[in-house]
């Protein structure tokens, strides 16, 4: 084997290594759209927990410099006439926030899906939330919204592709949930647009909440990133609050999602 042939073989072998890498960065479904299927770890909202292991010992908090949670500020802006209501609800969160009683957090508060199952005609979102397991069915066949059913916590979704981005529009919400944990109420006119894209093993989730009667402007949530994982979602344990009856301060806290 001469040097020229050797170099050729090296190039071929190198190409074989490169090709699968490129394919992994842009997985496509059979219909040519990006394949978003998979289990996506967004930290279950606890992405700032960086467990430190020492033999059989484990430290969940305070032992590593993990990523910092987003600070307060990712909040919708209300029209002036509704600010007093938001402040009042925030003050009375313990009495008014249904999530504290293990109700569904609703959309967009629930965040990005924990698992996506993609087919050409519909895409299924699965959630492993601390309040329970939830699902959303996103038709992709161009059908209109169903508005002849009872409004729900997660609304009625339809989806379409814009280039390589999945766009999901949801309407038909009840008004039992808040957008965040600080009294950010919404009406039944809420519309949420999610834009989901994939880059290799990373999923980006963008969401915008529209509620023009009460919001001064559409609320764009901070981008959320999730990583592909083989740690499958699990059946959610029951959510049973035992603290509300014993609370002696009306404290609340920021929503790190």
């Amino acid at each position: 084997m001469n040097i020229r042939v050797s170099r050729y073989l090296v190039t071929v072998v190198a190409s074989l290594w490169v090709v699968p890498t490129i394919a992994a960065e842009a997985p496509l479904a059979a219909d040519g759209h990006p394949d978003l299927s998979g289990t996506w770890d967004n930290g279950s909202g606890v992405d700032f927990v960086e467990a430190v292991f020492d033999g059989d010992s484990v430290c969940l908090r305070g032992c590593a410099a993990g990523p910092q949670p987003t600070q307060r500020g990712d909040r919708p802006t209300y029209k002036p006439e509704y600010m007093a209501k938001v402040a009042d609800l925030e003050e009375r969160q313990v009495d008014e926030d249904t999530v504290l009683r293990c109700f569904s957090p609703g959309l967009p508060r629930i965040g990005p899906p924990d698992k996506i199952v993609q087919t050409p005609n519909e895409i299924i979102f699965l959630y492993d939330d601390y309040t329970g397991n939830y699902f959303r069915v996103v038709p992709m066949d161009g059908r209109p919204h169903r508005i002849d059913v009872e409004p729900g916590f997660l609304g009625d979704a339809i989806g379409w592709w814009e280039d390589d981005t999945l766009v999901v529009e949801s309407v038909n919400f009840n008004d039992d949930t808040w957008l965040t944990d600080d009294g950010s109420f919404h009406t039944t006119d809420l519309k949420v647009i999610e834009r989901i894209s994939r880059d290799g093993d990373t999923l980006q989730w963008l969401a915008t909440a529209h509620d023009p009667e009460i919001l001064a402007e559409p609320w764009e949530l901070r981008p959320r990133i999730a990583q592909l994982t083989d740690d499958e979602i699990l059946e959610a344990p029951p959510c049973i609050d035992r603290d509300l009856d014993h609370i002696v301060e009306n404290l609340h806290h920021d929503n790190v999602r």
Partner: peptide
């Protein structure tokens, strides 16, 4: 401590602070 706890507990959508109890 309270802040750390309720940030730690804020995974999904937040709930009350443990300092309330």
């Amino acid at each position: 401590v309270a802040a750390a706890l309720f940030l730690a507990a804020g995974w999904a959508s937040a709930h009350h602070s443990v300092a309330a109890v």
